[in-house]
C-alpha cells in the first residue's frame, strides 16, 4: 500500500516538474526544474528496483546536465523569446 502511494506521488511529481520545465520563461529556472525532474525520475528507477540506473541518472541528469545547461545559458540570453 505504501509502495502504491509512493509511486503515485512520484509520478505526479514527475509530471508537475516536467510541466514546470515547459512553462518557465526564465531559462535558469527551467534548467533547475529539469534537474528536479531527473532526481524524481531516479527515485522512480530506484522504486522499480534498478539501483544502477538510479545512480547514473542522479549523477548525470541532476548534476552534470544542469551544470552544462547553466554554462550554456550564461553564454547566451537568460530570457526565452527575448528578441
Amino acid at each position: 500500500m505504501i509502495y502504491f502511494v509512493l509511486q503515485i506521488l512520484v509520478l505526479v511529481g514527475l509530471v508537475m516538474t516536467s510541466l514546470a520545465v515547459i512553462l518557465f520563461k526564465d531559462l535558469i529556472s527551467a534548467a533547475i526544474s529539469l534537474g528536479a525532474s531527473s532526481l524524481i525520475l531516479s527515485l522512480q528507477f530506484y522504486l522499480l528496483r534498478a539501483p544502477d540506473v538510479a545512480i547514473a541518472e542522479a549523477a548525470v541528469g541532476a548534476a552534470l546536465t544542469t551544470a552544462i545547461f547553466i554554462f550554456a545559458i550564461k553564454a547566451s540570453q537568460r530570457e526565452e523569446g527575448y528578441r
Binding site: 539501483p51 544502477d52 545512480i55 547514473a56 549523477a59 548525470v60 548534476a63 552534470l64 551544470a67 547553466i70
Partner: peptide, 21 residues
C-alpha cells in the same frame, strides 16, 4: 554492490561541477 565504472565516474565528475560552479 550496485554501481560500477560509469556511475562512480559520473559521481566524481559531479564533484568537479560543484567546484567549478
Amino acid at each position: 554492490t550496485p554501481g560500477g565504472g560509469f556511475q562512480g565516474g559520473a559521481v566524481i565528475a559531479s564533484s568537479t561541477a560543484l567546484l567549478i560552479i
